[in-house]
Design a protein around this nucleic acid. Sequence first.
RNA 1: GGCGCGUUGGUGUAACUGGUUAACACGCCGCCCUCUCAAGGCGGAGAGCACGGGUUCGAGUCCCGUACGCGCUACCA
Length: 520
Amino acid sequence: MAKKYSCQFVLIRGQVTRKEQTMSQIRVRFAPSPTGYLHVGGARTALFNWLFARKNKGVFVLRIEDTDTLRNDEAMVRGILEGMEWLGLNYDEGPFFQSDNYEKHRAAALQLLENGFAYRDFTPKAERDDATIKQRVAEAAKQEKPVNAYRTLSREESDARAAAGEPFVIRFKVLEEGKTQFEDEVFGLQERDYKDIEDLVLLRSDGHPLYNLSVVCDDIEMAITHVIRGQDHLSNTHKQVLLYQALGKPVPRFGHLPLIMAPDKGKLSKRKHGEIVSITTYRDAGFIPDAFLNFLALLGWSPDFNEYGDREIFSREELIQSFSLAGINKANAVFNFTQGDARNWTDQKALWMNAEYIKTIPLETLLPFVKAELQQSGLWRDAYESEQKVWFDHTLTLLRERARTVKDFTNHGRPYFVDDISFEFDEVAVKKNLQKDAALKDLLPQLAEAFATLDDFTHDGIEALLRKTAEEKGVKVGLLTNATRTALTGQSVGPGLFSVVEVIGKDRTVARLKHATQLM
RNA sequence: GGCGCGUUGGUGUAACUGGUUAACACGCCGCCCUCUCAAGGCGGAGAGCACGGGUUCGAGUCCCGUACGCGCUACCA
């Protein structure tokens, strides 16, 4: 049965208007493409923007970059929102949709044309096959590009041809002499010669504004002060700086983030690597959001050493407190995992961190996650919140010590929550702990009888009984405890056995010990 | 091809403005605890800081070159 996750974030096409703000207020944005899911890389970008905003009492804006009409679909946006909601990356404004601002972008292009910063290019459109686009672009780039002939076309002729209905694109006219520069918050001073920047297209021949123009217009419109995004945008930033200048607007600060790569240092993609790249996968696999957030934050960033030392565990608040762009590493980070390994299906450090959170956060904080999990697997009882709460909390305290994900409360916890024996008996455990010694066939029923009449059914009373029985029968305590563990839980590992017997309780213990003889 | 960015153990990161045998975490291996363990405790292996030069009394930290990786180079974002 699939759990329903309602998305509380409402998809309203926000108006791009903003509240009064002080000049110094920091404003950042996360601007994903509507791909249908939130990618771990995107999530980290969102996280760093969010941390930066919260740390500096700024504003975090969400903007959907749906300029590519092919993927403009609200269903595609939902996945992004779900991921952000789960991680608790709440935004202050938006979601805004870039496509809603087409007219403004177009107007900006026209303005640049009018002011002589751009020109019409009447070169016929070259058809490109989407599948081989990357390759073809790379090929084409190898050849020296001739200076665009329309750069110097007279205004009169340009106007005349446009009026005659001839199709054209509007290109930005990059000056021949000079260079752009900006100080990147992560990578430092960036410079680029104008001659290395091509005359970028602002408006397609069908009137559609293109990415570089759109981001700049929107970031101006939304008064973004710090553009924090993936390093894949670093080179293009020079073009954008040029646009800000031509538009006569102040250039924001930029901070580029190193990328998250696959173990082979190649691109981490859903196509190649599957669900592991999608944030909702972690939600559905039993991760605690704060744990995953913590892990993500440390992927390419570290807090100031002098202040925080070697710490690795940071609560959400501590993350905000300690966050600084100065701590961002410049090299790409590898998201480490082995495909096909069921136990270590994702980065092992992420799993470790999740386990760490499960065993150390306040029980009351953990409770809702476990409740949701048990409800989903049909193991939940309302009594766990009322008359059985003490027992339930005790059981969780035992179980969480060995859980890596919240799913383990079902996987390992089932024997603790069901009355009958509708849980799996691990084959290896049965063989090793129940079938190995034939004496158990008699010992377990005797043990069951002994437990049935035990008045002090507590950890200590149980231990005393088991030790005494072992002594009387002349067997090792381990023989009895291991057999009991498997009889009661079907498993070979778990919490201390005396505690296990205690929480399983007298009735189930007796019944399961008797039943175990059938397995021998 | 051009331009840009990067390179510390398997992975993620440290190492004050150059100065002890390069530290921590995950993982791995071993030992211990013990009723088991995928838990806990303890310990170990694993990089001499991509490579080659240079500056310096001294460089992972500064400079140059090379290699490799990544990004951008589109009427994609």
